[in-house]
Design a protein around this nucleic acid. Structure first.
Lengths: 109, 109
DNA sequence: TGCGTATATGTCAATTCTGACATATACTGC
DNA sequence: GCAGTATATGTCAGAATTGACATATACGCA
């Protein structure tokens, strides 16, 4: 179990409906992770479509290759904000970004 | 100018195409802000639709009323991740979340 | 007026994220 | 085998975010 969930469980103080709360949190967390994965995929596609290396993109973002690798891997240390910034940094259009949000989500509807 | 942009400008070291870089960053930043505003709006709607107070939602999220207020105001200290978590915490469906991403974006297409 | 409820704003310690670096792996051409 | 290029993984100091608290504002109602 990751730190974010633990924190939320702690914050909730395990008050009521423990099992239900647990399932609910898992559910929300799962949706978040799926969204992140979807965006990470879209980023990789956007980058490769433009034939940019991770290093190229890193420079455009003012970041490092290693972080770009983590972004594309949807590493836990990466926020949605950062993935979106990366997608925009590839030069992706607004449309491309929008599609990224809806892309793989269908798989889990 | 906010800290995030400053940081990116600093990171880029003002190397080449200063003016162009500046405009590009403004553009990407603008898109990010618009996305955040769009999501914040969707959150407010999702919450009110379910007749939850900010306090109610705060409890569900294991957070505080003041932070929920900031989330809905798309405060600079609020990440997209947090807004999405808030939307999910209202009990919004995957569909509702998806619409949130595409909602106001049309305005700026 | 005073009270209750809902929302907004400022601050801050503790937690989390980020860029950077070192290093590892994988593939290509020589 | 050995460069060169691209990508992946572990670590960490410095920077940013978060929940919490105090407090302020706004509205309705008695």
């Amino acid at each position: 179990m990751n730190t974010a969930k633990l924190k939320r469980l702690r914050a909730a103080g395990w008050k009521i409906g423990t099992a239900k709360d647990f399932l609910k949190l898992s559910d929300e967390e799962a949706m978040l992770v799926e969204l992140k994965l979807s965006l990470a995929d879209a980023l990789k596609q956007a980058r490769q479509k433009r034939r940019l290396s991770q290093m190229d993109l890193a420079q455009r973002m003012g970041s490092s290759q290693s972080r770009v690798a983590k972004i594309e891997a949807a590493d836990p240390s990466v926020t949605i904000d950062l993935i979106v910034r990366a997608i925009l940094a590839t030069g992706a259009t607004r449309q491309e970004l929008q599609r990224a949000f809806t892309a793989k989500e269908k798989m889990v509807a």
